[in-house]
Amino acid sequence: MNETITADEPMYFIVDRIRDGKSFASRSVKIKQNDKVIFYASCSFQKYKETPNQLNHQYAMPDVYPVDSAETIGESALKNSNMMLGDFIIDQKVTIMDTLPVDSRLAIPKDPHLRENFNLGVNSYLEKIEQSEKKLDSTQIRLPYNYRWIKIDSSLDVHPSVHICMLAALSDFRILMTAALPHFWGYNYNKNTLGMGVSLDHTLHFHAPVKADSWLLWVVESPRVSNGRGYVLGRFFDTDGVLVASVVQETLLRAQPKLESAINTLTFNTLPPKIKSFDHISNSTNSSPTQPKL
């Protein structure tokens, strides 16, 4: 998105047919308003079909408690509005664009160490610590990593392509705040001042059919923030554990330290993936597969 959009003026869509093949098609789309290009998109489409014995791998869905679990995070009994940055509510129940009712809740990891870190992203939990004699130390940095349950809060009898469009809208809902997690929550709570945070570019990949009105686990991480820009990655899993879509966003994130004690140069460890499970396609030459060494 290049310019501010107003609903009071007409918008003109200019679509260029880039390629039409047997399996793939490509389009470029420009939207103009008041003779200015306000939006640009490059779109690729694939004819979906089930192919036997096709190659298939994915990252596993993280182990989290179900969305209807009685577990709480950060000692909060609230389902929504636990994570806030100024006027931005990260886990919000709201209607976006005056059209789509969205329910977004913080998901709770089963890993106790990760859950303890996620507690550091709950504002009320941090406020209690600030008001007590206990203080956070510099090791208690909130990781740039987050889980959220999210869905369109309405049952919809619509074409599958509409669910894709609705997921596209969900994919831009508060995703950029993941880049701010280490700098505005945990040890750095109330130590920095946010100047501006907006999306610069946004990419969305669909991997499988999806229903946007069913609960999806949104796993979001930010590997890099530098020079006022944040790099954010997101993955959507359905409740069966299928990775249905992935997101990449670059954000503008301008902030200034409010306190000298703020720690704003951070490096986090990361690990390579490990095999969790596999299915073997048996055949006459190998009916008893050997489990790989992990």
Rank of each mutant, 00 (worst) to 15 (best):
E3H: 13
T6K: 10
A7H: 11
A7F: 11
E9Q: 13
Y12M: 09
V15T: 15
R17Y: 06
I18F: 00
R27T: 06
R27C: 05
V29P: 02
V29R: 04
N34C: 10
N34R: 13
N34Y: 02
I38V: 15
F39L: 14
K49S: 13
K49L: 08
T51H: 03
T51E: 10
P52M: 02
L55D: 11
L55Y: 09
A60W: 00
P62G: 06
P62M: 07
V67W: 12
I73S: 02
E75K: 12
L78H: 08
M83G: 01
I90H: 00
Q92M: 07
V94Y: 07
T99Q: 11
P101K: 09
V102Q: 04
D103W: 04
H113G: 01
H113N: 12
L114A: 06
R115K: 14
F118L: 09
N119C: 12
V122E: 04
S124H: 11
E127L: 12
E127R: 12
E127D: 14
E130Q: 13
S132F: 07
K135I: 03
K135M: 03
S138C: 05
S138R: 12
T139S: 15
L143M: 10
L143N: 08
L143H: 09
P144T: 10
P144H: 08
W149G: 01
L156Y: 09
D157M: 09
V162C: 06
I164W: 00
I164N: 10
A169L: 08
S171P: 06
S171K: 05
R174F: 09
I175Q: 01
M177D: 00
T178A: 12
A179Q: 02
N188R: 00
N188G: 04
N188W: 00
K191R: 14
K191V: 02
N192Y: 01
G197R: 01
S199T: 15
L200W: 00
D201C: 12
H202N: 09
T203V: 14
H205W: 11
H207Q: 14
H207D: 10
A208H: 13
D213V: 14
S214Q: 15
W215Y: 11
W218R: 01
V220N: 07
S222Y: 00
S222N: 04
S226K: 13
L233W: 01
R235G: 00
F237M: 03
D238H: 07
D238M: 06
V242W: 01
L243N: 11
L243I: 04
S246T: 15
V247L: 14
V248W: 06
Q249P: 03
E250P: 01
Q256C: 04
P257M: 05
L259S: 13
L259T: 14
N264A: 09
T265W: 05
F268G: 08
T270P: 01
L271D: 10
L271G: 02
K274V: 15
F278N: 07
H280F: 14
S282F: 07
N283M: 02
N283E: 05
S284L: 11
S287Y: 10
P289Q: 10
